[in-house]
Structure formats: C-alpha cells, structure tokens
Design a protein around this nucleic acid. Structure first.
Lengths: 199, 199
DNA sequence: GCTGGTACATACCAATCGGTACAGGCGCGC
DNA sequence: GCGCGCCTGTACCGATTGGTATGTACCAGC
C-alpha cells in the first residue's frame, strides 16, 4: 500500500543536513546512513558517484533554491520588495542563525577545490543579483556593487559568529543592521509604498 | 650533521596550517606527518593527547597571538591607534584573505562542540575589546557594541567570501569598508560634533 | 663509560573509511 | 498469476584512520 516511495529528491534534504553539520570530510557514510535511514545500497543506487556526487547534488539543489527564491526576484522583480523578501528568506533559510551555509562552509577548507565552480557561482550570482536590485532601486552602480558585497559577506560572517558564540540573536541583529545599512534612496513621490511590508 | 632540535613551539605553526587548510576532520595524521616532517612518534611525544591536544594547543596559541597583538592594545592602548593597528594586523595575519580563520572554520561544523569554550572566548573577547576601544574613543556604549560585532563578523564573512570567489581583493575591500563604517568621532583639537564619522 | 630522559622512526593495532558485489524484496506491466 | 527492473540490506573489499608499542640515536649528568 503506502510504500515509502523514496525518491532521490526526498533524500537530498536529509543528506544536506549531514554535510552541513559535519562538513564534507566529517560526513562519513556511517553518519549518512544513520541519519537518512538509507543503507549503502540505496545511497549508491541514487548516487553512483558516491560522496562527491551527493555533495554536488546538494550544492546544485541549494543553488537552485536560492535562484528561485532570492536571485531571480532580485534580478527581475520590484527591487525593494525583492530585497525585503531576501532578508525574510535568508532569516528563515538559516533558521535565524541556527543553521549554517553549506556553501560557505565548503569554501573554507580544502573541499573548496573540489567544488570551486559551484561555490564561486553561488556567491557571485548572489552578489550580482543584489547589486542589480540596488541599481534598479536607484543606487549608483559602484555603490550598489560595494553594498551588495558587504551584505552577502555580512550574512556569512553573521552565521560564523552566531555559531561561535552559540547565540542566534547575533544573527538576527546582524540581519537588521545589514538591511538598514543598504543605502536605498527614499521613495518619495510614488504611492507604491504601502504595498508590501518591507521588513 | 645539521641536528634539528625540534621544539613543540616549532611544530605548532606548521600544525596550525594543516588544520587551517583541511579542517579538523580533514587534517589526518598522514597529512600532518608529511607537512611537519615529524613522524607519529614525535607527534605523540609532543602531544600525548593526540589530534585533539594538537588542535587545542593551536587554538590556545592563536588566541594568545590575538590577545597580545590585538585585544590587549584595544583594551588598554590609545583607542584610535589600537583600532588602526587591528586592521593592519588582521590584514597581515590573514594574508589579505589568502588565509582563513581557524577558529571561525572550527565554529562552523561539529568541531565546534569539541572546542566550544575556546571558540566562544576568542570571539567574545574580540568583540568586547573592540567595543571597549570604541567607547573610549567616544562612541556611545550600545553603538560601540553593535559596531564591534559588525566589524568582527564582517572580517569573518570577508574571509569566507574571498575564499569562495578566490579573490583576495574582496577581503581588502571589505576591510576598508569595515574600517570606514566605524563611527569614530572626528579627532580634531576642537572636535566637530559630527555624529557620523564619515571619511 | 654508564645511565636516563628526550626526540624520533617504524611496525603494528583495531576500527573505520569510501566503495563494490550481490542476493533478494517489492511493485507494476503483462 | 509471472517476470522484470527498481530499491535496499548485507557482506565484504583494500586502504586509511587515530593511536600504541617498541626500538634506537642522541646528549647530559654523574
């Protein structure tokens, strides 16, 4: 009857959490099987390429999530709403600092060299998308680029510090500061201001 | 002939680089021996507690370095000079973004739980020391605390992003921005009471 | 010259690593 | 029904893990 139809898609989130928690080297097959409930047979059925394919799949899935929920809106949506949404999504995605950024963690150790392209693209696109939104909101191009970089890097730093101090309020505070520090011009004439709650 | 009298102190920096590069789990005894040139015999002679003692020693050594070169000056030296020195030391220590922060890296994965106290103290004292300097330079206490947190977290984020994009200019730029964003009051003999320390 | 602590290499250990082989169990088309 | 093919558990592989035991070269004090 209700077969536990396990699809690759169901495993990926579980898998992601293991890599997030232990890092690439620390995510042993043992821990993976016990956390996903899948034996090696299933694991290697879904991911013939082994650990590396698992990590690559997760990286792609994470990237895809950010493209859909963050980058794409920033690139083509109404800029202020998109930026507001970004802060909201980021806070939710990282569980207010209780969860870390897999891509950022991979970037720090030798794992980076294995997934260099994916890691670079993830961050480059984030910065570029945010800069695009800022420009379209009226910020000068060079200023937009600098502020986008500062915001993205601030999020990563906030994750590090929040985990180091084991205090999620650090993350929440940082997000508030980062949002405030974006120099979005006042939106005077238009009456679009009462549309969506902008953080 | 050339006797190499190796002391523990000589090994620690080599050791630190291995942990920095591969993370705690990734730093295998094999890699450690080949990078330090010391066999397991020597390693376990210096560090009877094994890998964990090696990492703990490194953590303590890093902390000590920061206390001497950054925190102590911030806490008791002339605040502006101390802050200026901090930026200089940080840029040099992290090799303009080519080197990562061991403590920050440990904070991200499950390694944190092994060294929770050391990691927390490292960052807590950094933030506290910087906040102290800011206050003594005339910044309001709550503002000083917020800005200190933002600066420290910004450094960590800059390290992540610089490595992710493999572009050390990201780090240098970030440091410049972070230094600029500290709202140090103007220091002319007759101080202009500008609230924002713009550059 | 003996002795004892220090510094180091080597061989070895059980456990675990990532990965493979294989024998089914199971649901679905027939 | 039946068989085929997608899942999945298990046994197993060689290599490597962190760690230990043993042996030895070296120097200092006596």
């Amino acid at each position: 009857m209700t077969r536990t139809v396990f699809e690759k898609a169901d495993v990926v989130p579980l898998l992601a959490e293991v890599f997030r928690e232990f890092g690439y080297e620390g995510a042993t097959l043992n821990r993976i099987t016990e956390r996903t409930g899948l034996g090696k047979g299933s694991l290697y059925h879904f991911f013939p390429g082994g650990k590396e394919e698992m990590a690559a799949t997760i990286l792609a899935e994470v990237d895809d999530w950010f493209v859909r929920n963050v980058y794409a809106p920033l690139e083509s949506g109404e800029p202020r709403a998109a930026i507001a949404r970004m802060w909201k999504e980021v806070d939710a995605y990282f569980r207010s600092g209780r969860r870390i950024c897999l891509v950022g963690a991979f970037a720090l150790d030798a794992t980076r060299d294995k997934f260099a392209a994916a890691i670079r693209v993830y961050f480059a696109r984030w910065v570029a998308a945010l800069a695009s939104a800022l420009r379209r909101a009226g910020v000068a191009p060079d200023k937009a680029a600098a502020e986008a970089e500062a915001a993205v890097l601030g999020i990563q730093g906030a994750l590090v510090l929040a985990r180091a101090l084991n205090d999620e309020k650090v993350f929440t505070r940082a997000l508030t500061r980062l949002a405030r520090d974006l120099s979005l011009p006042k939106r005077s004439p238009s009456s679009r201001s009462t549309k969506k709650g902008t953080l």
